[in-house]
């Protein structure tokens, strides 16, 4: 359970930030401050998306080696990435084979040594897979695209919300929702006005 949470630890502060925004939305009656809370909430949602797309040891998804004088003549980066993957897959296979082989040969002699050798093989495999990903690691570009447009659309919708608030202020003379409710109630019952 602890490991389950520790690997996903980063989501917990983001959720708390989300809830801070939600608290502002619910707890205040002032419409401008509500929109402030909503924009905090929105920023935190963006953070959550981007955090999912993060890869440890990765770089921003801007491919190297395709820009500048070498472009077009240098090795194709995708090819090199794939080649890197393949090479280290082979590496991994060899490592596995060696590990297994070592385990087989020594198994008859000394049990603990065999276990150690097998473990060594496993470590080699891990090292090889790590190498495979060192060929080119980029963070996931897909959340970036979604959030990039979401931010711009978010500010456009924020503008619509603020325009509504301005019109409400001009019509009611207040932007506190208690005042708005009582004004509406007065109109409906034909009382105050």
């Amino acid at each position: 359970m602890f490991e389950l949470l520790s690997e996903r630890f980063i989501y917990i502060p983001i959720i708390i930030l989300l809830m801070t925004g939600l608290y502002v939305v619910v707890a205040t009656g002032n419409l401008v401050k509500r929109l402030v809370g909503l924009s905090l909430f929105q920023t935190s949602v963006c953070l959550m998306y981007i955090a999912i797309g993060k890869v440890f040891g990765g770089t921003p998804p801007i491919l190297a080696d395709t820009h500048g004088e070498d472009a077009g003549h240098g090795p194709d980066p995708a090819a090199s990435v794939v080649a890197g993957h393949r090479a280290s897959d082979d590496h991994a296979e060899i490592a596995t084979d060696t590990g297994a082989h070592a385990a087989d040969t020594v198994a008859t002699a000394h049990e603990p040594v065999a276990a150690a050798a097998a473990e060594h093989g496993v470590q080699l495999v891990e090292h090889a897979t790590e190498l495979a990903h060192h060929a080119a690691i980029y963070s996931n570009p897909l959340p970036h695209v979604l959030i990039l447009t979401a931010i711009v659309v978010g500010v456009a919708t924020l503008a619509v919300g603020l325009a509504l608030v301005v019109r409400i202020q001009e019509a009611y003379g207040s932007i506190e929702d208690d005042d708005l409710n009582s004004a509406d109630y007065a109109v409906e019952t034909g009382g105050a006005e």
């Binding site: 921003p60 801007i62 820009h67 990039l148 447009t149 711009v152």
Partner: peptide, 11 residues
């Protein structure tokens, strides 16, 4: 080639 694009430049 780098960070940027229509949305950011427009803003």
């Amino acid at each position: 080639f780098g960070a940027g694009g229509g949305f950011q430049a427009g803003v």
